[in-house]
């Protein structure tokens, strides 16, 4: 069962037939929580599904 707003890591791992260590679960939990806390910075109008290219990002930032 999930212990927070984040995913149930144990169940996700079991679905892939993987056993995660406690340390690995804690790290994933920590990463996910930090990401959740950063949602306020996201520009929801931006299209994320693109190959990361610095030149393109630079142009965006100059706009």
């Amino acid at each position: 069962m999930s212990t927070s707003l984040g995913p149930d890591w144990k169940a996700l791992a079991a679905a892939q037939k993987i056993e995660l260590t406690e340390t690995a679960r804690e790290r994933l939990e920590g990463l996910s929580k930090t990401l959740l806390g950063l949602r306020g910075l996201i520009d929801w109008t931006e299209e994320p599904a693109q190959i990361f290219q610095l030149a393109a990002s630079q142009e965006d930032s100059a706009e």
């Binding site: 995913p7 890591w9 996700l12 791992a13 892939q16 993987i18 995660l20 690995a24 790290r27 994933l28 990463l31 996910s32 990401l35 950063l38 949602r39 910075l41 996201i42 520009d43 931006e46 994320p48 599904a49 990361f52 610095l54 990002s57 630079q58 965006d60 930032s61 100059a62």
Partner: peptide, 28 residues
């Protein structure tokens, strides 16, 4: 590798959006 296999795709995509945003701050 196992940790990456269970990471939700949404987390990956949000990270890409945020990454671009922080790059803008660094370029400034």
């Amino acid at each position: 590798v196992d940790m990456g296999r269970v990471l939700p795709a949404t987390d990956y995509l949000q990270a890409q959006r945020l990454r671009k945003r922080i790059l803008g701050v660094y370029l400034d």
